[in-house]
Simulated assay, not measured.
Amino acid sequence: MTITQLKYVLAIAEHKNFTKAAEKCFVTQPTLSTQIQKLEDELNILIFDRSKKPIELTDVGRKIVYQARNIVNEADRIQDIVDQQKGFIGGEFRLGIIPTVMPTLLPMFLKNFINKYPKVKLKIEELTTEEIILRINEGHLDAAIAATPLESPNIKERPLFYEPFVAYTPNSHRLSKKNNVEISDLNVDDMLLLEDGHCFREGVINLCKTFKDHIDDNFQLESGSIETLIKLSDEGLGMTLLPYLHTLDMSDKFNANLRYFIEPSPAREVSIIYHKSELKMQIIDAIHNVISGVVRGAIAFQNVKIISPVAK
C-alpha cells in the first residue's frame, strides 16, 4: 500500500469517474486503474462498485476513504513541518473566502500579498461558510476568511477586523430622515435580505432579533447579491443592511442613502480560520498580517458590538 494509491482512491471518490480522477492526478487512466486494482487485490476487498454509474464506494470503501484522507493529509504535513522549521513561506495554499467578503477584501490585499510573498501560490475559491467548514475538515482547504464566531470545535479563528453594518435607506423609507439609526429601529418586515446560505443574512436576522423574541421566516424579498438588494431598495421595496467595506466605493448618489448606527455599532467579526491541526502557520501569519495592515486604514470603527453569523 502506498500514499500514491491512497491519493488515487481519494480522487476517484471525489470525481466518481476513473478518467476524471486520472486527469486530476496527472496520470493515464490505465495507470490509475492498475494501481487501484493492486490495492484492492492486496486488501482482498472492492473499494468501488464499478457497476454503478457514476461509480460508488462500497460500504468498506467509505471507511477506507475516511482513513485514507487522514493518512494523506498527515503525509502532506511532513513538508509543512520542514517548511516551518526553515521559515520558508511558499508553496501552494488553498484559501476559501465567503461571497460577502470576497469582492471587497480581495482587491485590497491580493496584489500586496503576491508582491511580498511571491513564492506562495494562492488558490482562492469563493465558498459559503457551510462549504468552507466542510472543506477545511476534509483537508481540501488550508484556511478561509469568514465571519465568526462559528462555534465549530475543530476550527481555530483569528480575527482580522471588525466590519460594521450600515443601513441603506432610500428617500421613501421611514428611516431616511434620521441621521443615525438604532438597532431598535429595524423591522425585518421591510428588510431586504440575502438568500439563505449567506452568513451575512444570518447576522442581519440575529441583529433584528436583539429587540424581538421571535421573527417569522416569511421575508418579503431575498436576493443572491448585495448589488441587487441596493437596486431593489432604490425601487422602494424596503431597506437593507450592507457590510461597511461595500460602502467605500459608492457614489455620492448612493452615499446619501447610508445611515450609520449609534455606537456601539453592530458589526461582524471577519477572521482567518483553519483546522486546529493546520501546520502552514507561517503562511497563515503572513495573510493575517497583510490583511490586518491593509484594512486597519480603511475601518476606523472601534466601539462595536459583534453580531454572530451562527443561526439562532
Rank of each mutant, 00 (worst) to 15 (best):
L248K: 14
I273Y: 14
V166Q: 03
N137T: 15
G197H: 02
K178M: 03
T148R: 00
L110W: 11
E125L: 12
L192G: 00
I283M: 04
D285W: 03
D41W: 05
K177G: 04
E263F: 06
K24H: 09
L175D: 06
S292I: 04
K212F: 05
L232Y: 15
K156T: 13
Q35Y: 11
P118F: 04
Y274E: 13
I262E: 13
K24P: 04
S223Y: 15
L134H: 11
V72K: 09
F93S: 08
V65H: 08
N289K: 13
A267I: 05
I124D: 05
L186N: 02
N206A: 03
T34H: 02
K178F: 04
A146L: 09
N73W: 15
S271D: 07
T100W: 00
N187W: 09
P118T: 02
S176N: 13
I114R: 09
R296V: 06
R158S: 10
L241H: 00
K276L: 10
F165D: 05
L193R: 09
L160E: 08
G197Y: 02
R259W: 02
Q29M: 15
F48C: 05
P149T: 10
I215H: 11
T148H: 00
P164F: 02
Q302V: 12
L193P: 12
L242M: 01
I155E: 11
N289S: 13
E40V: 00
R62Q: 13
D249M: 15
S184A: 07
D41V: 04
A298M: 14
I205S: 11
Q220T: 07
L175M: 10
L229R: 00
H246E: 06
G91P: 14
K20R: 12
Y168F: 07
V101W: 03
V101S: 05
K212Y: 05
C25W: 02
F109R: 05
V310L: 12
H288Q: 12
F113N: 14
F165S: 03
D83N: 08
F18I: 09
L207F: 13
R77F: 14
I36N: 06
V295L: 09
L245A: 07
S233W: 02
E278A: 10
A167L: 07
T28R: 03
P264R: 06
K53L: 11
E42K: 14
E74Q: 03
K231T: 15
A13V: 08
V82L: 11
V188K: 07
K123N: 14
N180A: 15
E56D: 12
G139P: 15
K52W: 06
L192D: 00
